[in-house]
């Protein structure tokens, strides 16, 4: 049991349910493998890894009172293990190549404006470059014909946020029940929760939510 900080769902940890009827063996195995993702790059170079790390930290900033979800490692794993989306925009190269080109281009854009690589910029400047990428305004030759906006929408946002919300720690923040098999849910109506669902801390009832979330099993 890890006490998550006072948020909407104080004390709620979906991992507490790991050994209950809410998790079956196949799900336990899947989550175990996910939590054991290699933390070192297998696809990216050291320089790309720095840029990717900085980008992940701006796209999904994480609280500093818990170990961060290793987002770059999941992006790397998706490429290394060839987990494809099932479609590719005609203007984008395959995912590994798109990432490689995009990260290099982001560094080139940072060098161009601030004479330093992306990861060395302060967060505001990093955000400003992201905003220009999202608006489709980055056009240095390093993009090599790949529209920065398409890259941002379908690689940066997709791969990083999907990795974040695939991690059990993120489910705690949402009060999401997480795995549910064989046990699903009983109380379906508005404003009802099963005892194995996260209790939300309504104003003035934080202690009660904390108490209930310790028994979410």
């Amino acid at each position: 049991m890890t006490d998550s900080p006072a948020g909407r769902y104080p004390g709620y940890d979906v991992m507490d349910k790991r050994d209950t009827q809410s998790w079956d063996q196949v799900t336990r195995d899947v989550i175990d493998r996910r939590l054991a993702v290699p933390r070192e790059p297998r696809f990216f170079t050291a320089a790309e890894w720095e840029t990717l790390g900085a980008l992940c930290a701006r796209i999904m900033p994480q609280p500093d009172d818990r170990p961060p979800i290793p987002l770059p490692a999941y992006v790397d794993a998706k490429i290394t293990e060839r987990h494809q989306d099932g479609y590719r925009y005609a203007t984008l190269p395959p995912q590994g190549e798109a990432w490689r080109r995009g990260l290099a281009a982001l560094d080139a854009e940072a060098e161009e404006v601030h004479a330093t690589r992306y990861h060395a910029l302060d967060p505001d400047r990093q955000d400003a470059l992201i905003a220009r990428m999202q608006a489709g305004e980055l056009t240095l030759p390093a993009w090599d014909g790949m529209p920065c906006k398409t890259f941002f929408e379908h690689r940066v946002l997709g791969d990083i946020t999907h990795a974040y919300y695939a991690h059990p720690v993120s489910w705690n923040e949402l009060g999401f029940g997480g795995p549910a098999s064989p046990r699903g849910y009983v109380r379906m109506q508005l404003d009802r929760r099963d005892p194995w669902e996260a209790a939300e801390a309504h104003p003035g009832e934080e202690d009660r939510a904390l108490r209930e979330n310790r028994h979410v099993v």
């Binding site: 809410s22 079956d24 799900t27 695939a166 997480g178 098999s181």
Partner: peptide, 8 residues
């Protein structure tokens, strides 16, 4: 036995 409760 093979369908995990997991989107990814």
């Amino acid at each position: 036995e093979e369908f995990a409760s997991d989107e990814t």
